[in-house]
Nucleic acid binder design. Structure first.
Length: 519
RNA sequence: GGCCCUAUCGUCUAACGGUCAGGACACCAGAUUUUCAAUCUGGUAAUCAGGGUUCGAUUCCCUGUAGGGUCACCA
């Protein structure tokens, strides 16, 4: 099924298990595999590790792929996807990039079975009939006396006939690998250098529940070999799996891939990021309104640096700069503030049209607007119809203030309400008296009424001229701004007025005047 | 507890054995300003400890300390 690849071709893989949404750490692993493959003109393979039938769900699988697609981390190969499969995934993923499905371990049982049988026949793996209770007790004991809690090999030398007899009886069993005794297993980690383990800490570990149900370490080794993966780049939590996989590779006569174990991404408590504290799934970041390019840029800089002082990189620029040598050894704390800053810079760089399109779902979800047609929207509260162009103007007022898309809602809400709601006190600038506020609002109203061309520039000119009378522009502009927005901070009142239009601007100032008069 | 890994500003990080230990985020101050941002300028802030090796250690070695990972019929 998998074509023989050319000698020395770089091939990496991302091998998630579909048991939940894509994790930030998962994106980083995928990203580095992707970057390394692309940098070296190699291949990037996606493999779904769904051997755990209890926890694996197809919806997670499609969400995983959707997330990778969103980031632009497209994989190169896999079985060609049939029309039927496309339909099966229904709404989740409409079209896969390159029309490749990922490799699914659940569809490769036959392959694993063959190799499993090979090990059993060669006496390198055996059936174990020990019960869970027995093993738990043993583990407890070993840990209590400070020994590594490994299987003691009770069934290791069980005669073949005996094993077959138990098997026939239907006795519960697992398949264990016969780990060689007293063996030093070392490998060169491309990031950490030489790492060595003693085989005694491995014990005879379980490689399959039975011939039909192989377990992670086994399937991983078989697949990496079958798929001719040249570089296994994965999280640091896997270093302790590596010696197990190496002894399996040797027993099966496979070639060892190169290994690179990435430092962990930590939470602010400096622990491995977990679902317990903070946001870990990328879907949460997507929903909050982080851009894929910002997230990619940020994650790339977590544990890697280009060796220069540059910090802003597109995916293609990362490919050009990437190298494994520049990867850090120590774990890196996920620094949300820096992500926010980066996202803000990407938001500011974005074209207004696209930014507005990105904001639309948030405005709809907030119940501000509903879509009438492609370019026409209705403000729900006032039933007014507005164009996409107008929404662009609204968004443009806040482009440079935005850190993430979701913030647009509370920033621009006053455009979508009949009138802003605010406490009277908010209209007061510094020590102004009620009379002064009233005068100020009436002055604004007068200036605005007399204006023919209702544009921010003209408004500014006229209002600044009026403001000279008191010397402090705030005297005029603060009450005006509050009357229009009901907020203590916002974009400039002239720009807001222009977008609001003369009529509404006038109405809102009049309302503020009424509030002041009701003293 | 066993095994494995790691250690530079609060955080992400730079520094062929010789640098005033550099940059970015955050923070503080100033400029700008009607507010909040954005922007510009400046500032505070770090080599875990102790031993070696060396003319000279952030850098190499050892010990200690601290932190992390992992010890499933999960991946």
């Amino acid at each position: 099924m998998i074509a023989k690849k050319e000698e020395n071709r770089i091939r990496t893989r991302f091998a998630p298990s579909p048991t939940g949404p894509l994790h930030i750490g998962g994106v980083r692993t995928a990203l580095f595999n992707y970057l390394f493959a692309r940098k070296n003109k190699g291949d990037f393979v996606l493999r779904i590790e769904d051997t755990d039938k209890e926890r694996s769900k197809e919806e997670w699988e499609s969400q995983l792929m959707k997330s990778l697609e969103w980031f632009g981390l497209n994989w190169d190969e896999g079985p060609m996807i049939s029309e039927q499969q496309k339909i099966d995934f229904g709404n989740h993923v409409v079209n896969y990039l390159g029309s490749h499905a990922p490799y699914r371990q659940s569809e490769r049982t036959g392959i694993y079975k063959k190799y499993l049988q090979q090990l059993i026949d060669a006496g390198q793996a055996y059936f174990c009939f020990c019960t869970k209770e027995e093993l738990d007790a043993q583990k407890q004991y070993l840990m209590s006396i400070g020994e590594p809690p490994v299987y003691q090999g009770e069934c290791r030398d069980l005669p073949k006939e005996k094993a077959e007899e138990y098997l026939k009886e239907g006795k519960n069993c697992v398949i264990r690998f016969k780990t060689p005794d007293n063996l030093k297993i070392s490998f060169i980690d491309l990031i950490r250098g030489k790492i060595e383990f003693d085989s005694s800490v491995l014990g005879d570990f379980v490689i399959a529940k039975d011939l039909e149900n192989p377990l992670y370490n086994f399937t991983c080794v078989v697949d990496d070999a079958e798929m001719e993966i040249s570089h296994v780049i994965r999280g640091e939590e896997h270093v302790s799996n590596t010696p197990k996989q190496i002894v399996l590779i040797r027993a099966l006569g496979f070639e060892e891939p190169a290994y690179a174990h990435l430092p962990l991404i930590l939470n602010t408590q400096r622990k491995k990021m977990s679902k317990r504290e903070g946001k870990t799934s990328v879907t949460e970041y997507i929903e909050e309104g982080y851009l894929p390019e910002a997230l990619i840029n940020f994650i790339a800089l977590l544990g890697w640096n280009p060796g220069t002082e540059r910090e802003i990189f597109s995916l293609d620029e990362l490919i050009a700069e990437f190298s494994l040598e520049k990867i850090q050894k120590a774990g890196a704390v996920f620094n949300l503030e820096k992500l926010n800053w980066l996202n803000g810079t990407y938001l500011r760089k974005k074209g207004l049209k696209n930014l507005t399109l990105d904001c639309l779902p948030y405005l709809e979800k907030a119940g501000f607007i509903e879509s009438v047609s492609l370019n026409l929207f209705r403000i729900k509260e006032t039933k007014e119809e507005v164009s996409l162009d107008w929404l662009e103007k609204v968004v443009s007022l806040y482009q440079e203030r935005l850190k993430k898309l979701s913030e647009i809602v509370e920033l621009v809400d006053y455009f979508f309400k009949k009138e802003p709601d605010y406490p009277k006190e908010l209209l007061r600038w510094k020590q102004m008296s009620g009379k002064e506020i009233l005068d100020s609002l009436e002055a604004s109203l007068r200036v605005i009424s007399g204006l023919k061309d209702f544009k921010a520039d003209n408004l500014q000119e006229a209002l600044f001229k009026e403001a000279e009378k008191t010397g402090d522009r705030g005297n005029l502009l603060w009450p005006l701004r509050v009357s229009l927005t009901g907020k203590k901070s916002s974009a400039g009142p002239m720009e807001i007025a222009e977008v609001l239009g003369k009529e509404k601007t006038t109405e809102r100032i009049k309302k503020a005047i009424r509030i002041m008069e009701n003293e």
